[in-house]
Simulated scan of single mutants.
Amino acid sequence: MRLHTLCFTPFVICLSALASSLWAEDTEKPELVWHDVSDWGVEGRAWTEEERFNYFDRFPAQGKETLREAVWNLSESPTGMMARFETDASEIWVRYELRSEKIALAHFPATGVSGLDLYARDGEGKWRWVQAARPYSQEVETKLLDDISPELREYAAYLPLRNPVNKLEIGVPAGTEFRGLAPRQELPIVFYGTSINHGVAASRPGMVHTAILGRHFDRPVVNLGFGGNGRMEKEVGDFLERLDAAVFVIDCLPNMGPDLVSERCVPLVNQLRKAHPDTPIVLVEDRRYANSWIRPEKDAFHDRNHAALQEAYRTLKSAGVKRLYYIEGDHLFGDDSEGTVDGSHPTDLGFWRQAEVFKPVLKKALKGR
């Protein structure tokens, strides 16, 4: 018993010290002023003048009646939305409420599914990562970072990728300068696609290729990625044609087969071209599964899917459709099979590689836009 007591005593002391440390941290919390991002607006939120059920829904309320239920449900997550602000605060807090108790998925971490990701511009005006919130419950209030050099700078907070958000506030110590930055007026890059566009399985919201490309081109982005449900649907096209975009990127093949590609690609492009005669449109092949090199049937499927999109592209070009661009899928995640978590969805490495493949094509498409 004596030995047991001696072994247990340091553990009690450690727990006591930990509790004291946590209590000290709580007592040192500064007086904060909270700012609701909906007061000045977030980028990536399209159709801003139309009624919504929730501020952070990606589609306006009308979509609940016209879109497939699965698409609508997935659109309730604020994927791709970004709140910009300026502050000279030496520490930054966030407070937000998540709608789903599914903070993480088996192959998709909580920091990506439900986290908030903070970037700032450095002295040269480049976006640099700062910190990500690690959500622990549906109600998150946490200090993102302290000991920040006290100078006025621009920040951007990416919202969670796969968990609907009811409210988001940024907190800074009382007496510091803070200004919410309204969404930029430049035409956005609009992505319509699948779970890959939706961000599965990025470690944090800023690592999706759509976000990487938004920072690279320093443009607003609208992310219309719907896990398992990006299928070139006319009903989604009905919303797309009401958007003024710098470029439309159609990246739906991972959720489609050759017959569906042949059926829907040409009509969707024609629908967008009729509404926007001069807006560039980019068609993207599906990535190959990273292990398709030892799965002949899967590899053959990708061949057929790519061939169907190539045929649609040739048909559109032959019909005189201008400003149409094409991205091949074979090298989107690289050539070493190391860019995915499950063969299908990218890791951060896969997202980065995909962005690198997109960059030269988007650079051409965005010229003069």
Rank of each mutant, 00 (worst) to 15 (best):
R162H: 06
F351L: 02
V249G: 11
L316Y: 14
G112N: 01
Y136W: 11
E49P: 01
D122T: 02
S100C: 01
E311Q: 15
K64S: 12
L187E: 14
E51A: 15
I212M: 03
R287A: 05
A245G: 07
G193S: 09
R95A: 11
R68Y: 10
G368K: 11
R162I: 00
L213S: 07
K317W: 09
S137Q: 01
R314C: 15
L118Y: 11
W47S: 08
K359V: 12
R184C: 07
Y192I: 10
R242D: 09
R2N: 01
W47C: 08
A174S: 13
D36Q: 05
E311I: 14
D259N: 14
L253D: 14
W34P: 06
G63K: 13
H35A: 03
G206Y: 02
S149E: 14
F56G: 03
H198E: 03
M1S: 07
V71E: 05
A365I: 12
V321G: 13
P346D: 02
T142P: 04
V33Y: 02
Y325R: 13
H198A: 07
V361A: 06
N291A: 06
L18H: 02
Y192A: 15
E338D: 15
V113K: 00
P164T: 03
K64Q: 14
T142N: 01
G193L: 09
L243C: 08
N229S: 01
V71K: 04
L6N: 01
A290Y: 05
G180M: 02
L181V: 10
V261Y: 13
L98Y: 04
V208N: 05
F217A: 05
L366A: 04
D146A: 12
R179C: 07
Q185K: 09
F56V: 03
P30V: 07
L272N: 10
G343A: 04
T66F: 07
S344L: 10
